[in-house]
Nucleic acid binder design. Structure first.
Lengths: 251, 251
DNA sequence: CGCCGACTTGACACCAATCAAGATAAGTGG
DNA sequence: CCACTTATCTTGATTGGTGTCAAGTCGGCG
């Protein structure tokens, strides 16, 4: 029940490339906040934001225990939030997608670690200036509150998955979740791309990588999916898999 | 892995007694918001709040799927948040204590069920009027945001417990958590009072009631606790139990 | 004091963690 | 571009933990 899940990847530590202060983001050559925020929020946030680019996956953004000075908003890429336990185990608390906020702190320190899984660009907001801004822009703050509540819902959903599902049901649930992110699921070919390793999946699902492999075997045996390669899966029967997750009879 | 956890208690459904509009709460004969909120917040919130009292435990406050019109703040008592799955299982997402907010909604409907475990008094805020108030009182909204973030941290902590701990470690973690609520732990006698049943504990810990009993046996065998009665436990070695949870060697 | 439900204990089966080894894929350098 | 190297992924065998069913005990409430 306790095994170290630390991988080579975690040891890489290239520094992010600071692209520009965020108000340059309104130019065409840089990512835009357009799809993520309203014009008002965009204008105000841009004043205090910095745009960062992590050129490659596997780079740490911050680590648990570090002094927390920033809140982060993903423009592009995937970020893994995790916590390391004294017994050498790791729990992945979630994967953050474009538009998601992260950088939860407690008493001035980050309580989770954040690493990007892919090439990632994100906006960085200084906490003190952000708080001042939130107090002067209640609508923006309400938006932030909504995002926090959204994260809370996600966490509660995962509580159910970890508390009540066996490993194959956990995996099925995760696969359907990823489907909702268009960049990783093509409804035409029904091919789902997995941006994370089996280790990451296992640590997210509260199991071992071997169990994830066996769960894939079960989902394939039932005709729900087909592994094309370790990182890509064909969804053969999404509805059936949804029923399998709910636990009601197949038909 | 899937067994119905529905108990008699869930069938009770007595209506709450509406004590007073909340601004009466500043009178001495009613519970006060003093300890929970700043004077400003108290004054503003009181204008829209209603004070409810649930005379006995086991009463439903709201159920998942119902139209959501209110946010709740506990003045006194314990509330259980849970979700029922199609397979008849139940997951308890958390227990709410005095000062905690609950009533999370999605698209206008509650996504969790809330029942009080004990006699409970709570403040009820109409959602629309609350939102208006939040927009005009940014400081109050920031307070609410902090509470939401606090809930998110709790949920993430429980994700670790469910994802990485075996049942006895889960139970130990839960017992220490309850210790932090003074009303249920007396540091003098070291007696911890459990306000919930074994079924509730099991559904919170993602296990079966039988496993909770066996986990108690293990914690007793190791000299961490002693069961005085089903609902009260003597803490013999809190530090040792904390080490047990962390998973590092005893000494 | 008696009843009923909550709690505990035991037996057994199943699921998943672990250890070990082999297969596959990806990355690297010539 | 290919061969080599290395890590990831998968599969097998074994063990331990826990869900489940069953039966008994305890405790609280009327």
């Amino acid at each position: 029940m306790a095994r170290s899940s630390i991988r080579r990847e975690d040891l890489k530590g290239r520094r992010p490339k600071i692209l520009a202060r965020a108000f340059c983001a309104t130019h065409q050559e840089h990512p835009s906040l357009d799809n993520l925020l309203s014009p008002l929020e965009q204008r105000e946030l841009a004043k205090i934001a910095m745009l960062l680019e992590y050129q490659t996956g596997g780079v740490a953004i911050f680590a648990e225990g570090e002094d927390a000075h920033f809140l982060y908003l993903i423009s592009d890429g995937i970020v893994r939030l995790s916590r390391h336990l004294p017994d050498g185990t790791r729990q992945v608390l979630g994967f953050m997608w474009p538009g998601d906020l992260f950088g939860l702190a407690e008493e001035g320190r980050y309580i989770n670690s954040a690493e990007c899984l892919t090439r990632t660009t994100l906006f960085r907001f200084p906490l003190e200036r952000l708080q001042t801004l939130l107090l002067s822009e209640p609508l923006l703050q309400l938006h932030l509150l909504a995002k926090a509540v959204h994260e809370l819902r996600n966490a509660q959903h995962q509580l159910i998955v970890l508390g009540r599902f066996k490993s194959s049901r956990r995996l099925a649930s995760m696969l359907l979740d990823i489907c909702h992110h268009e960049a990783f699921f093509d409804p035409q070919t029904r091919i789902l791309h997995l941006p994370m390793s089996r280790f990451d999946m296992a640590d997210y699902l509260g199991t071992a990588p071997e169990s994830v492999a066996r769960a894939f075997v079960e989902l394939e045996r039932d005709g729900f999916v087909r592994r094309v390669s370790p990182r890509s899966v064909e969804l053969l029967n999404a509805n059936g898999m949804a029923r399998f997750i709910r636990g009601v009879p197949r038909r």
